[in-house]
Amino acid sequence: MFTQRLDFKTTDLDTFPFPFTSGNYRYSNDLKRLSNINCIEVTPEYRLQVEAKRRLLQEQPHIRFQSFPHTLEMQWEVFEMLIDMAIDRYPQHFEVLKDGDNWTFRNHIFGESDSFVFGDASTLPNEPLDYIGRHFHNDFVLMVHRDSNFYLEVGQVSYAALFSANWNKGMSFDEIHAPVPFVSRKGDELAERVRKFLLSIEPGKPWTRINWNLMADRWDVNYETMDVWEPKRSEITPESAGKLVRLRVEEQKFYRLPRSNAILFVLNTQFLPLEDLALRQEWFDLTYSVLQDIPEPMAKYKGIAPFLPQSVEYLRRIDEERKSELRK
């Protein structure tokens, strides 16, 4: 059985997508143009993350992967795009041999080699996106463009923060975001504005944003296991928060697919325990400031209300210690 107490965190801080740029955080349309458009990344935690992801997909297939049967062609489009990116960036790790439609894909990190017929899903052990997704640590979601909206038609989700591929299957962008208290600093509703923005995304010009949350001693929090993690959150104390509470960030990338016109949503999820924030003083200061100023509805929605005060108290103590060191 999968353990949620994974001893996993980002060790190369240069790859950690730190989320805060100012001392307080409110929801906004914070999408920015993505400069490096290749979403494949092999970090020091690659093996650990991919192995954990594969285990989840194996043990909980209905929770972690969902699709409609009519999406296979779109899935092949993504399949090809991800393989191209992987080989382009890491030719030493990934390789593809093509003889017409007879392809062999190799992952040298895991020492794996699979042969199949491109375009014929029956020659793969899983659906195309489910198969190729198992070679990268990201989550992948396909949002199909229809009637000025986007509908979730394929999802491989192993790092959930209230994201259930099973529950969200077939939902529109607006339905998916209905639980979010999605109001801006000025108080206006954001869902419609963001959806309209997504409509304007063009092929070859992806966009990005960073989402964040805090996790209390968990890898992911999903609706499926709410009975397990919900009561545990209040067990966090200021003494344990440094190790057990992690800043969880999702670097999100949005690609328009040229053939199917769908949006591919790619998530890179990384974790940093609160105690590691001190490795970068600027990160510590921003996080400490942001966490002291979370609006109540946001804290409730994110599920952090039961351990936010303990987390802030932990940071306050560290801050105090540092300041008294400086005074010496």
Binding site: W167, K169, G170, M171, E175, Y223, E224, M226, D227, P231
Partner: peptide, 16 residues
């Protein structure tokens, strides 16, 4: 309070 037309039901959050 959320309904899925695909699942034809309201979300049921598990609790102990």
């Amino acid at each position: 309070p959320f309904y899925s037309i695909v699942r034809e039901g309201y979300i049921g959050y598990p609790f102990i």
